[in-house]
Design a protein around this nucleic acid. Structure first.
Lengths: 202, 202
DNA sequence: GCAGTTAGTAGACTGCAGTCTAATTATACA
DNA sequence: TGTATAATTAGACTGCAGTCTACTAACTGC
């Protein structure tokens, strides 16, 4: 298997190998992502691949030339078009780390309220497709985990959190509470975000 | 839709309505559960329904007369045959509640180590099938949640935990950490169980 | 222009879960 | 013995994601 087979579609342009053969039509990628996000939001993840390619106006093979599965197309569309970027908390200032954590969690929960069903489906897809699980971990899980870990370690360094605590375990409890509530259909409110920050810094 | 359509297969015998028509062959249910659990454990959840009914020696329709989906058959097989029952912690004695929680979590993690992949798949199925989600919640999520909630409330009543804490949030952090590690392919060790108990009772 | 290479198209194909059909079988009751 | 009812069977069928085939189109380099 060539490396490029598992490469995120958007990174492929960075390949500077001399071009040979017919060039890829980049408009098709954009059309596919736009169609996928729109249809998944209006009809749910169960929308068929046939409907997506019909709306994008491309052939089936063109989709599978770019993404190995429907899940990876939807993941790309979701992250590029749905405003999923979260601001990394500013650890330079003097804001109490408990407050930075609460703000971060409020922001994450807020972004997700609109697309909770979609995120649940992507987590589900990750359970039955190891390749997609790795991609999902890199794009969604790890970045959020590293933000929280950096924040907790900084809080320990500043004496706002006991140095004996295990940041990995605390991070699993924070993200876990979020996943658990998401996967069991319970709302992710600002009150939950604040409560989690209070519990961790108690 | 009749109530019985969503009734757990094993509860149906409790229906004492006078029998009319050909009686259900109960041996077929047992054969299906045994075949499902054996094949899912050896070949993974991806094993086909055709393979399960072939091994059980029954027809396709006989399976779907008893369970609405493959997931519900596997769930029944898992809970009845895989020794998933956990002992409810004894809140009558004087054992510190932190220790009861640690023991409970060790037991849950231990049972799951053997069938972690299967449980992950069932959680995934629950995300795309609301009917199955309800069944899974009743059989797996709620019982474990209620055990932990009762333990935490008892600990508060005994003064082993601050009365101001929110047991629902603490429970979500405990179970969440477990789900998060399970769904992200990280091991559920005794050390994690003990660490969670320590964090909650810190 | 022509060869080589790669992306594009339409659509057939595979294997899957779950539904449906038609015929058969086991029971209760009259 | 016959009728009503519901479970059983084999297997066809539907709609799905993803693969494959045969062909066409766009580009590079000679």
């Amino acid at each position: 298997m060539a490396d490029s087979d598992r490469m995120a579609e958007s990174d492929r342009m960075a390949d500077e190998t001399a071009q040979v053969g017919r060039p890829r039509n980049e408009a098709a990628s954009a059309a596919l992502k736009a169609a996928a996000l729109r249809l998944v939001r209006t009809e749910g993840y169960g929308v068929s691949v046939s409907a997506i390619i019909r709306e994008a106006g491309v052939s089936r093979q063109t989709l599978y030339n770019r993404w190995p599965t429907k899940a990876e197309l939807v993941l790309d569309a979701f992250f590029e078009l749905a405003g999923m970027q979260v601001a990394t908390p500013d650890l330079g200032g003097d804001t109490p780390r408990r407050d930075l954590l609460a703000t971060f969690l409020r922001e994450v929960f807020g972004h997700l309220r609109k697309d909770a069903d979609l995120l649940r489906t992507l987590i589900a897809e990750a359970q039955t497709d190891p390749g997609f699980r790795a991609v999902f971990f890199d794009r969604f899980v790890r970045p959020r985990e590293e933000i929280v870990l950096a924040l907790l370690r900084d809080a320990q360094a500043r004496g706002e959190m006991n140095a004996g605590r295990d940041p990995d375990l605390a991070s699993a409890m924070i993200h876990g509470a979020f996943w658990y509530r998401l996967l069991n259909d319970r709302p992710l409110t600002d009150a939950v975000a604040d409560g989690l920050a209070d519990e961790v810094f108690r």
